[in-house]
Design a binder for these strands. Structure first.
Length: 202
DNA sequence: AGTTCGATCGCCT
DNA sequence: GGCGATCGAACTG
């Protein structure tokens, strides 16, 4: 199990341009990237795209509000919101400059700081369940609304790409836990990963 | 000012 | 497969 320090050596930070694209492309390309916060890190294995227009499930759909304003700001920032009275969800602001859009991070494969994650998530009996959901991964890494609006390029929450290695095989499904615009194929997973929410997709 | 309900999770049957 | 927990944002009047 690598330390955060050795992961930082094996990876490079993503640039702003990575996020300044269609959220569908960003959601797909986030798979296999590494999310680092404090002494914990995980590989992104599941994402969902939320569009600025033509997507009633997106928080940006009804226009700008106090809660969702970072979705309308610069790409490459964290949008963290509170849901169901107890959980926080992490998104990356992702859209061409001037448009609103985001990528919900739905599951991670723990890579570093696993014991810390276990202490934060005693309910998880298996490593596969430590960060296998949007509310679980924020608890596992200690991500809270304090990070809403923080810059993913220069801030404490980093996203990095491995220097070497083939890109992962990707599966696509409909999104989870929404009712409006539910049929759109906007959920992306690493094929065969046991760390995704719900059942593995082959 | 009151109400509704949600981009969830874990425990119960 | 079903449901309760728990609370803030957003909408209604």
């Amino acid at each position: 199990m690598p330390s955060v320090d050795s992961l930082l050596e094996a990876t490079l930070p993503l640039k702003r341009e990575f996020y300044s694209r269609d959220p569908i492309e960003v959601a797909r390309d986030c798979l296999g990237k590494v999310l680092v916060y404090g002494q914990t890190a995980g590989r992104i294995v599941e994402t969902e795209a939320y569009l600025g227009v033509d997507d009633e499930a997106s928080h940006s759909w009804r226009g700008i509000t106090k809660r969702n304003q970072v979705l309308f700001g610069r790409p490459g920032h964290a949008y963290v919101y509170f849901i169901y009275g107890m959980y926080e969800c992490l998104n990356f602001v992702a859209a061409p400059e001037g448009q609103a859009g985001g990528v919900l991070i739905r599951a991670l494969e723990p890579l570093a700081g696993v014991e810390r994650m276990r202490r934060r998530r005693p309910a998880a009996k298996r490593t596969e369940d430590l960060a296998s959901g949007p509310g679980k991964l924020t608890v596992a890494l200690g991500i809270t609304r304090k990070l809403n609006g923080s810059d993913l390029i220069s801030g404490p929450l980093q996203v990095r790409a491995f220097r070497t290695g083939a890109p992962p095989e990707v599966a696509v499904t409909r999104r989870i836990g929404i009712s409006r615009s539910a049929d759109l194929p906007l959920r992306f997973l690493i094929r065969g990963s046991p760390f995704v929410s719900g059942k593995r997709v082959d």
